[in-house]
Nucleic acid binder design. Structure first.
Lengths: 189, 189
DNA sequence: TTAGTTGCAAACTCTTTGCACGAGG
DNA sequence: CCTCGTGCAAAGAGTTTGCAACTAA
């Protein structure tokens, strides 16, 4: 989280970009951008963004959040994230490439900006395919250190793949693993 | 696309996995898995999966498609893809890591299985963060060769970022770029 | 026999949109 | 002023779920 003056200044920069693209600088856009900047790293979704923005300006509606988020995305000033939760998360795009590690067990997201080397590598892969990279977030899924420790020494072929609560809604409701005692999904060997 | 005998054999393997996990081998699951296997590379969504499966067994309902897809995902036999289209696409997981290149301009997806080297690289990144990778699809977004050619020589700072039709529904409906003649979004410099 | 599965339709959740009003330039 | 932008409420789209009937084991 940055200092307030810095954020205020950044907000104005984003608004300036919006203005110079021919759009209007409105109070709502200012508040939403400010909220986005103050919550970098939190990856809020539309609902959270709304609630936080409403603390500054209670009149803001959800439609405006979606419209602002879309505007920013169109101008490529925003990264969208999708963790298969059934909704999107948003983050101001401040660099060209982000890499997130998403734990399928506990749902935690550790994210750090891609260092030059990683970015270069991915760019090279893209080039091989004739692609030109756009600023974005790369989601890499796995099991985090904590969860690995908690799971203990399990053979690769039976590594636990079940999404535990916290991963979002997908993967937790249909068939439960059969049998009374079992509580986890295992990979077939 | 593989030969029929091979697919039939694969279907049985998947069903066997399901059975050995304690679930039942049903006609519907057989048909859906077969459809998934026959459409590898197409990344069908739930609706498309339903339509194609219904050609074999018209009684199949959309709920069963979703439930089967969730079962397979829970067993980590399926990769989910999210291209910000408003729905998910599915693909049988046959390898540990896939890398897709998604063109933000035309919406095309070129995907090739990660070769050993790429997989190793990503795994190393994960290891640095204490992560253990799970089978998955990595979506890398950019602009494909064709679209780049079409766009011509545009400076990096003004590179076109607008999602053209075909990218899905996000990013195409709210504010249009202002002014009568302009049809594209440009990045602020 | 019996617990897991299915199809249907209703319910849900997130996102988008039509419209009349309001506000930036 | 004249558009563009906003809030509201309704509409849409994809996904999930309750339930009675069905079926694999």
């Amino acid at each position: 989280m940055e200092k307030h003056e810095d954020i205020d200044q950044l907000v104005e920069q984003y608004l300036e970009a919006i203005k110079s693209a021919g759009f209007r600088m409105t109070t709502q856009r200012r508040v939403i951008i400010e909220t986005l900047l103050k919550n970098m790293g939190d990856h809020p979704n539309a609902q959270e963004l709304l609630e936080r923005a409403q603390k500054v300006d209670p009149s803001i509606g959800i439609a405006t959040v979606y419209r602002t988020v879309e505007l920013l995305n169109n101008m490529d000033l925003l990264n969208l994230t999708n963790l298969q939760e059934g909704f999107r998360r948003y983050e101001i795009a401040d660099e060209n490439l982000h890499i997130h590690f998403y734990c399928r067990c506990c749902g935690s997201v550790s994210h750090f900006s891609a260092d030059r080397e990683k970015e270069k590598t991915v760019r090279e892969w893209a080039r091989e395919a004739g692609f030109r990279l756009m600023p974005q977030v790369l989601e890499i899924q796995g099991v985090c250190e904590n969860c690995q420790a908690e799971l203990g020494d399990i053979p690769e072929e039976e590594y636990i793949l079940r999404c535990a609560p916290g991963c979002g809604r997908f993967g937790r409701r249909v068939s439960q693993p059969p049998g009374r005692g079992r509580r986890r999904w295992f990979r077939n060997s």
